[in-house]
Design a protein around this nucleic acid. Structure first.
Lengths: 235, 235
DNA sequence: TCACATACGAGAGCAGTGCTCTTGCTTTCG
DNA sequence: CGAAAGCAAGAGCACTGCTCTCGTATGTGA
């Protein structure tokens, strides 16, 4: 039994989320208005509260969905080149996939990686979906590890504390990745996200004419470090 | 002639800005309320509009001030070690100074580097103050250049387009810095800001226990690249 | 099948927001 | 000294999130 009422409810919820996403894409998350959604839906504003207890709850739902979409994009980028088995190519593809998703969905990216809404503590529901896109990168590192990588001197200059933290993370997530490789991966991840944020949030205006070139520089830089011997410059 | 009225006006403006900054620090920029400021000031809300034409104008003023403070912090960090003439130490000091300012003033940092307010195009007034903190880094690079640096192979893996963009920037700002050095500096800058953003916006929670270790890794990484031969690991 | 419980939409209303306009009063300047 | 400009106050508009109540429609257990 589908439950007629349940189906109807699910449809309304989906429609609310859809309209909310449109609104966020057009005017940003700060301008998200339950009343505007209600109007678009032909409902009175209080009726919307039957489906979402508050504006924050709707925002949380949007964040979860966006994390999911980002994860899917990253995974798709990896899948597209995985069969070739070239680790460096996979790294470049995943990074480029993340950036492309961000460029295509700037408002959603801002929702995830921009200023946290004040007083809005990201609920625990978001950490699961949030780990989806990072999981793609971790899977790559795990494959590198499984492929019998040669320990490099990448960790030589890493702060001791970072290796400690990474070891703790390794234990927490039960990862089969060497500390130095994981640490190098974390730095690479941080640098990639940083380059994307700088670009999308407008801090490269009048600085770098083609922001993607800075991004590529960052990606290439870590390609050589993460996968020694396979680095190749991108024109 | 001080102009009694002018002095009074300047004082009121300063008080508004002060209260606004407190409010931003406590509740975030999104919660900035002209009415609340008016209440704290013992004025009626419409009176505030004598001093700032709109909420956005007040926000712009806050942004400019924050950029200024960040610039001062970066400059002070540089000054503290400059007489030693050690480029690598200056780089580390400036980077650490920027991060420390961000950690001490998270709301202001979010104001500058977080999600751009939708529909709010950063006015031209902000680009001057914005270039103040980057100017500290550029000055360091210029000093390195003037010190007769040995061209390294840092640019070997850089995308060609980045060097083109950097050359354009060089011409625009009339900088006496080699393209490859400036490009490497841009990447270092992007990575540093990215690490700070990731940390301050909460994306390292449950990932890295001591976020500053990731930051230090990023800084050290570029120390070796920007100032060959002077790299020293930080425990 | 009937009665009960639940879900739902509508409406009014509260407290808050940014912003505008008008009304007087005060300070400044020609 | 009088005109002009600056200023604070108040009322008001349109909007927001959210709460409450009130009928009605819907699904379920007896």
């Amino acid at each position: 039994m589908a439950g007629i009422r349940e189906r109807a409810r699910a449809e309304v919820v989906a429609e609310i989320v859809r309209l909310a996403r449109v609104q966020v894409a057009e005017s940003g998350a700060a301008a998200l208005s339950l009343r505007a959604i209600a109007r678009d839906l032909g409902m009175v504003s209080s009726a919307v509260y039957r489906y979402f207890a508050s504006r924050d709850e709707l925002l949380t739902r949007l964040i979860i969905d966006s994390y999911d979409r980002l994860g899917v994009a990253a995974q798709a980028a990896d899948d597209a080149v995985r069969r070739r088995g070239d680790f460096a190519a996979r790294w470049r593809a995943i990074a480029a996939g993340i950036r492309q998703w961000a460029v295509d969905n700037p408002a959603e990216y801002a929702l995830l990686f921009g200023t946290p809404v004040p007083g809005y503590a990201a609920p625990l529901d978001t950490i699961g979906p949030a780990s989806r896109y990072t999981g793609v990168l971790l899977a790559l590192l795990a494959d590198v590890q499984a492929g019998g990588r040669v320990p490099s001197d990448a960790a030589a200059n890493l702060p001791q504390q970072l290796l400690v933290d990474v070891a703790a993370l390794c234990g927490r997530l039960d990862l089969a990745i060497d500390d130095d490789l994981l640490a190098a991966g974390m730095v690479a991840w941080a640098n990639v996200m940083g380059a994307i944020s700088l670009e999308l949030f407008g801090h490269l205006h009048n600085v770098i004419d083609t922001p993607c070139s800075l991004f590529e520089a960052v990606v290439v830089e870590h390609t050589g470090r993460l996968f020694p011997g396979t680095a190749a410059p991108i024109s």
